[in-house]
């Protein structure tokens, strides 16, 4: 579903990704761990082309992200083509980024009706099912400002799911939440993982990574330090840097 080969990314002089390679099969959940500034969020944003990569190759579901290959040459995709690809990849942000001028329901039906051209009645029915699934059936007509952080994040998850994505990206989805609100969001994500969604999750929630993850990737200074089954990596980290990081967060 996702394949990265030597992905490089720089912001000016600062090299944030120094050759990241990994692979993720459909239906798997990959959790990415690492200190802040290690490049894990940047890598996530490269997957749906919110950031352009400077080197390497990135494939989602068999097609290159942001580019078209003809022979040896890469051509950048047009805006409409990039948008089409992004519609297949859901993303959940640390700061939720709900549309504040729309109710929870309007947030969820916005992209299906305006991007996919789904009929309003169908979109509303699907949105209600999704909001029900994340436990917010009674909040459909509420504006984001009147929702708690945890509720907002669950609306954001429903909004991403409404596009029926092949792959879901989570960028530190619980980092901006009060501790007592984290549980509901993680539960919604666990549910999603059980239903077989392919997910890449950048997180600091070690417990979630251990239980819900199929693979755990530890990144530091723009490279993958080690990766493997979460229980193994967490119990017996092979690398000093992993060990040092885990000793601080566990």
């Amino acid at each position: 579903m996702l394949r990265a080969e030597a992905v490089h990314k720089s912001f000016g002089r600062l090299e944030v990704l120094k050759g990241v390679s990994l692979e993720l099969q459909a239906g798997e959940v990959m959790c990415m761990l690492g200190p802040s500034g290690s490049g894990k969020s940047t890598f996530l944003r490269c997957i749906n082309h919110l950031e352009k990569i400077d080197g390497g190759r990135l494939w989602v579901d068999g097609s290159l992200v942001g580019y078209r290959q003809e022979g040896d040459k890469l051509y950048e995709l047009r805006e409409s083509e990039v948008a089409q690809k992004r519609a297949e990849i859901g993303m959940v942000f640390q700061r939720f980024n709900l549309f504040p001028h729309m109710t929870a329901l309007e947030n969820v039906i916005e992209a299906p009706t305006h991007v996919l051209g789904v009929g309003k009645a169908t979109a509303v029915a699907e949105a209600k099912t999704l909001l029900d699934r994340v436990g917010l059936a009674d909040k459909i007509d509420t504006y984001p400002a009147q929702l708690s952080g945890g509720q907002q994040q669950r609306v954001a998850i429903a909004r991403a799911l409404a596009m029926k994505p092949k792959l879901m990206l989570f960028d530190e989805p619980t980092s901006a939440l009060d501790p007592e609100l984290v549980g509901d969001v993680l539960e919604a994500m666990r549910q999603l993982a059980r239903d077989g969604m392919t997910m890449v999750v950048v997180t600091h929630e070690i417990g979630f990574a251990r239980e819900a993850g199929d693979t755990l990737v530890f990144m530091d200074e723009g490279v993958i330090v080690e990766s493997g089954p979460p229980r193994e990596v967490l119990a017996n980290p092979r690398h000093d840097r992993t060990r040092a990081f885990l000793s601080k967060v566990l």
Binding site: N48, L50, E79, S80, A83, Q84, R86, A87, E88, I89, G90, M91, F93, N97, L98, F99, E110, A111, H114, V115, L116, A156, R159, A160, M163
Partner: peptide
């Protein structure tokens, strides 16, 4: 960013 990630142009 949220709008782009939903495929909006």
């Amino acid at each position: 960013e949220a709008a782009s990630s939903l495929g909006m142009r």
